[in-house]
Design a protein around this nucleic acid. Structure first.
Lengths: 106, 106
DNA sequence: GCAATCGATAACTCGTTGGCTATTGATAAA
DNA sequence: TTTATCAATAGCCAACGAGTTATCGATTGC
């Protein structure tokens, strides 16, 4: 399985798709029709984006009669947070090493 | 100007480009030649990626004779962190509102 | 039962983008 | 001064991806 942040970056890179996810975070549970009304693209396009978001684990779907409700899965963002923390960690390590070096030079 | 996280998501979505950035975070200052040696793609491809990273503010370049050194600009990740925090905030707000509602129903 | 709505899928188009090779400008080395 | 190296640019191509319209299966309402 590829590294978990890989799919997240790819999925969230598209503005339309990210807007859909943001809306689900803001306002919670939404039907496809409700999301389509505000997405600025066609219903099939929205369905496709939701499929990609679901594949990335960023949303869940719940079927209720002929409506499908989607909701954000906030925990799925964890690998993204981990990745940024890791980058910051690398940075800090190198800084610490430099500090040590300078200390040893005294 | 577009929202600052927009360009970051787009820039970091490409695996090759992200690997270059990661390497700069891990190991600090690198020449284009050094980065090319490990990138698995041609030197022009690396230069193009570095151009995109620079445009996004994620790297800085420093010229030294005929070599060009690049280094990571860690602060540029801030809008990404802000965005994830904002998503978490929306989530929390909705939870709080639900809590309030339940409390008022007592 | 029949018409209407919801949402997913199919099939296609088109712009974007990541890759390449070739080349150029600039600096260092011989 | 001539040759070699470094990095950026130009020009091209193939693949991918986001959008469209058309359609279909499923559910609900008349």
């Amino acid at each position: 399985m590829p590294q978990p942040h890989e799919i997240l970056f790819k999925t969230l890179a598209d503005p339309t798709r990210r807007a859909i996810f943001e809306r689900l975070c803001r306002d919670g549970d939404q039907t496809v029709a409700a999301l389509t009304a505000r997405a600025g693209v066609s219903q099939p396009a929205v369905s496709k984006h939701l499929g990609v978001l679901k594949q990335a684990g960023l949303v869940r779907d719940r079927h209720e009669g002929r409506n499908t409700h989607y909701s954000a899965e906030l925990g799925a963002l964890a690998p993204l947070i981990d990745w940024t923390n890791q980058m910051a960690g690398f940075w800090q390590s190198r800084f610490d090493n430099l500090e040590d070096l300078l200390k040893r030079m005294d």
